[in-house]
Design a protein around this nucleic acid. Sequence first.
DNA 1: GTCTATAAATCGATAGAC
DNA 2: GTCTATCGATTTATAGAC
Lengths: 193, 193
Amino acid sequence: MTRLTRKETHAQTRERLLETATRVFLADGYNATSVEKVAAEAGFSKGAVYSNFATKHELGLAVLDRVRLERAGSLAAAVSGAADLESRVAAFGAWAEENIGDVGWTTLEVEFATSTRRVPGVRTDLAARRRALTAAVADLVEQQAAELGVTLRQSAEDLAVQLLSLGIGLGVQRAFDPELPVRSLVDLLRGAL
Amino acid sequence: MTRLTRKETHAQTRERLLETATRVFLADGYNATSVEKVAAEAGFSKGAVYSNFATKHELGLAVLDRVRLERAGSLAAAVSGAADLESRVAAFGAWAEENIGDVGWTTLEVEFATSTRRVPGVRTDLAARRRALTAAVADLVEQQAAELGVTLRQSAEDLAVQLLSLGIGLGVQRAFDPELPVRSLVDLLRGAL
DNA sequence: GTCTATAAATCGATAGAC
DNA sequence: GTCTATCGATTTATAGAC
């Protein structure tokens, strides 16, 4: 064990800032959170943030990447834990109930996207990420269908678009009306099998 | 023709402010538009705005009501103009292509909702409006189904939630990736008949 | 690399004149 | 009722010390 190089402490600071930003953005929203608050909660000053991220937007994008990766893992784990088709669908429903809307994930994605859609660089980034995410969901759907031996009534790509869009729409509405059930997501999935 | 009473000029100013705010909010977004810009574009000063609306949030809610009413009328007109089932579905598809996402409507609704979801008064307002809108869509669906003699495969209420959620999700994504087609909305509708 | 200090700009909202 | 002027608070981002 040698002492950390400059590069390593830099990466460590960046990681801690990302962790904190993720937590605060999810709790309070993107617009309502100042860069200063993120820095303070992480035990740094604003300068440290701007030493690791060029702009607040860049920090926001990095946070979104982080959350998306984590949730994708949690979904994959939840789904693949179940054996047969019916329990996989049920597992998906349970995951959706916990992850769509009220935890702030959807809301953060959407607030960021709508608030920064005029910023030239960010906009193209968001578009690229959307396509990657859709493709990933389509792959997951296809793989699951093959594994379980079911044939889809539409292309995996179309189903992925529908699932993602419906999830976004439900999540947005649940952000200010948590009583709205996510049942329709499971309905959509069942109807497609 | 007598000269306008104080009440009438007040209402006139309010109307002009609403018109202008609608246009600017749709074009530039809610957060990016200052109260001062709305006032200036309408030919007034900020004071006139705050004489007609208590806060910027209240102005935002009034704008949303206005737009929603107008779009609801345009949808009803588009749908009822067609005679048989197939052409009504097609009319709906054409309306969706023009109204979901790229015109800024969905984006404005969603940006406002996600940015103000922590504001106590606004939040309950949004929830009430969501329920009213869902009920209105459910009514429209039910009425159309009865008129055309088709039976739905699920409750009109559930279908309304799905249509609205899918529309919101597609609209949000189209805001930064306009190439995403709205086809799935029509697919969903067809599948429910 | 990080911190302190501050720039530079903007915003929502209010007070008082007219 | 509307306008002018301004408050007061906050923001992102930067410059220079350490």
